[in-house]
Design a protein around this nucleic acid. Structure first.
Lengths: 353, 353
DNA sequence: GTGCATTTGTGTAACGCTACACAGATAGGA
DNA sequence: TCCTATCTGTGTAGCGTTACACAAATGCAC
C-alpha cells in the first residue's frame, strides 16, 4: 500500500523493472537497437507500451550526450518580421530543409531588442547558431560568439569574427545597377532600412558606410559606384528606405517618387518585392517601363519572370541550407554562392559588356 | 602540473571555485539574484567573466527544473511548406509573437512523413505542442498526445481529443458561399488538398467527408450546403484542388476552368492567395468580375482590400497567438475566434439577409 | 576440449544544474 | 539580555539518461 506517483511520466528505470531487464538495456533498445537481442527488445517495447513510456526524455538525453540535436536561428530584433519578409522566409525554408533532412530540430530564438537578448541566446538549448542578417553592432553577435558553439551569420559582418554566408553584395549591386542605370538621367533606389530602428525615410545620396546592416551597406556602395562610373553625382540620387520588405511599401515609395515632376527614370530596388510594387505603381500612374522608368529587383523570385522584371538572381534558400550545415558543424563547400544578372523587359536594352 | 581540460566549457563549479563561494551561490546569482548579496553577486560575475562562463547550461537547467522554456510547433508533413504558405506564415507569426513576449523558445519539429516522425515528436525538448492543421489520421497526433504535454491543434480534428483553435469553418463557408454563389448558374471552388499526398486534381461535386483535413472538409461541406440551399446540384460543381496555397496555382487553376466554354460564373476560393490568382487570370482572359465571374477569397489578407476582393475575414495571427498560450498551459479566453463576411467589388450586389 | 572473437546484458559514474533543508550571522523588539 | 525574524551562504541529493568497462553466454575453428 505504498503510495506510488501514478501520473508521473515513466522513466527508463520503470520500464526496466517491468521488463525485467536493466536500465541500460532499455537505453540500448532506443539508442542502439542493434546492441539488443530481438526478444529482449520486444519485451522492452511491450513494457514501455504498458507504462505509456514514449522514449528517452530528450532533455536528460541531451545532457548526457552533450548534444541537443537542434540548431538555433536568430532572426533579428523582431522575430515576427521573419514571417512578414519573404526573403527571410525563403532563407528559413532552406534552413528548415536541411534540418528536416538531418532530423535536427530548429529553434527560433526570440529576440526583442532588449538587454535580455544576450541571456536568451545563452539559454537556448542548441548545438549551433544561424544568425539572419543583422547590424554590425548587434550585441546578439557577441552573445552568440560567447557560447563557443558553431555559428554562422548570413550576409554577415566580417567584424564579428564569425563565418558568414552570402554573395559579394557590392559587386552584385554594381552589376545590376549598371543595367538599371544605363542611359539614366535621374536614378533612385528602394532600400532596406539603414539602422536598427528601421526608420522609413527619404535621403539624397547617403553615405553607404552609414548603413548599419552590411547587406544594405554593400549594396548601396555598389549602386553608388555604378552610378559614379557613368559620371553621375551620387548626392542627387534619391534613396527611399522601406521599413519592411513588401510590395505594398515598394508601391507606396514609388508613388512618392513619381509624384515629383523631376521623378526618377531608373529605379534599383533591393528586393523583387519592392520592385514589383514599383512596377505596379508605374502601371497605375501610366509611366512606361522601361522607356520612362527602368526597373530592377533583387533575388529573382518566382514572380519576377512573369512580370518581366530584370533582377539580380541569388538563391536565398540555398544560403539558408549552407548556413544550417555550418551551424551543424559540417564544413561548407568553400565555393561562394553564385549570383547572376537576369535581363528582362523592365530595363532598357544596352550593349552587352 | 595536473593536465586540466583548458577548452572545456566552464561550469558553475568552476566559477564557484574562482569566486570563492559555493556552487549554490553561483546558481542563485543567475536564477534568483535577490537571494544573493550585492558584493557576492559582483564577485561571482567577475569570476564568470574571467572564465568565459555565459550562464547556466540550458539543458542541465531544464533537466533539473523539469521545464524547457520552449514550445514545439509541428507544421505538417513538409516543414518547408510553412514558409511557402502565407497562411501558415501568418499563423506562425502569431505563435512567435507570444513566444517573444513570454521569453519562450519556439522549436519547429521537423516532420517528413516517414514513420520516424513520432519519434521526433517524442524527442522534442519542449513544454507543449502546437500542431498546424493536419489530417485526422495523422499519426503525429497520437505521438503528441502520448507525450502528455499540453497541446493544441489548429483547425483541429475533434477526433484527436486535443483542444483545438479555429472558427466554425462550415458555418463560415456557408456564409461566404451565399455571397459568392448568389445568382450563379455554375459555381466552382478552388480548394486546398483533400489528402495527405496533396494531389492536384479536378473533381465534380466530391463528397466533403472524403477530405482528410478537417478545415478543407468543413469548408467544402459549407460550400455544398450554400449551393444546395439555392436548389443547385452539388454534383455539377467543379472543385479544383490546388496543391500549394499560392496565387500562381490559383491563376493556373482558374485558367483551366475558364478554358471550358461552360466555365463557371462564380468561384469560391479557400484563400485570398488563390482568389487573387483567379482575379489575375480573369483580368487577363477578359472575364468581367463580378458580372461574368463572382469571386470570393478567405482570410482578408492585406492584398484583399486593394483588389476589391470579397472574402471571409479571420485572423490567423490571432489563432496562432491563442494556440501558443494554450501550449504554454495558459487557459484560453474561451470565446471562439471571430469571423466575418467582407463584401467588396468581386461579388455581385445582393439583398442583405 | 581449448582458445578466441562475438553477442548480449549489467553496474557505475557522471552530464551540470537547482530544490530543499539547514546553519550562521545580523537586526530589531521587549 | 534574550528571543524571534530576516538575510545570506552552504551541503546534499537527485533530475533521467548514456558512455564505459566489464562479465557472462554463445559460437566457431581446430
Amino acid at each position: 500500500m505504498s503510495s506510488e506517483g501514478q501520473d508521473r511520466r515513466p522513466t527508463m528505470a520503470d520500464v526496466a523493472r517491468v521488463a525485467g531487464v536493466s536500465a541500460m538495456t532499455v537505453s540500448y533498445t532506443y539508442g542502439q537497437p542493434a546492441r539488443v537481442s530481438a526478444g529482449t527488445a520486444e519485451r522492452v517495447r511491450r513494457a514501455a507500451e504498458e507504462l505509456g513510456y514514449v522514449g528517452p526524455q530528450p532533455v536528460a538525453r541531451s545532457l548526457r550526450r552533450g548534444r541537443t540535436g537542434s540548431i538555433g536561428v536568430v532572426l533579428g530584433e523582431h522575430l515576427t518580421y521573419a514571417f512578414d519578409d519573404p526573403q527571410a522566409a525563403r532563407f528559413l525554408a532552406g534552413v528548415a530543409q536541411v534540418c528536416a533532412e538531418q532530423a535536427t530540430g530548429l529553434t527560433l530564438v526570440p529576440i526583442t531588442g532588449a538587454a535580455s537578448d544576450s541571456a536568451r541566446v545563452a539559454q537556448a538549448a542548441v548545438d549551433g547558431f544561424v544568425v539572419w542578417t543583422t547590424s554590425d553592432d548587434d550585441p546578439v553577435l557577441d552573445a552568440v560568439t560567447a557560447t563557443g558553439l558553431p555559428a554562422v551569420v548570413h550576409g554577415g559582418p566580417a567584424r564579428s569574427g564569425l563565418p558568414s554566408v552570402g554573395i559579394d553584395d557590392r559587386a552584385a549591386a554594381r552589376a545590376i545597377a549598371r543595367l538599371a542605370f544605363a542611359g539614366a538621367r535621374a536614378p533612385a533606389i528602394l532600400s532596406f532600412p539603414l539602422d536598427r530602428a528601421r526608420s522609413a525615410q527619404v535621403l539624397s545620396g547617403p553615405d553607404p558606410q552609414a548603413a548599419a546592416f552590411p547587406v544594405t551597406r554593400n549594396r548601396l556602395a555598389g549602386f553608388k559606384e555604378a552610378w559614379e562610373e557613368t559620371g553621375g553625382s551620387w548626392s542627387q540620387v534619391q534613396v527611399v528606405v522601406c521599413a519592411v520588405n513588401s510590395a505594398r511599401l515598394g508601391a507606396a515609395a514609388t508613388a512618392h517618387l513619381l509624384d515629383d515632376d523631376a521623378g526618377p527614370d531608373a529605379l534599383a530596388a533591393m528586393s523583387d518585392e519592392l520592385a514589383l510594387g514599383a512596377l505596379h505603381t508605374a502601371h497605375e500612374v501610366g509611366v512606361a517601363v522601361p522607356e520612362a522608368l527602368a526597373l530592377t529587383g533583387w533575388d529573382d523570385t518566382d514572380a519576377a519572370a512573369p512580370a518581366g522584371l530584370s533582377t539580380l538572381r541569388q538563391d536565398l534558400r540555398d544560403h539558408g541550407a549552407r548556413c544550417a550545415r555550418i551551424a551543424l558543424g559540417q564544413h561548407d563547400t568553400g565555393t561562394p554562392p553564385p549570383w547572376e544578372v537576369v535581363r528582362r523587359r523592365s530595363t532598357r536594352p544596352t550593349a552587352l559588356p
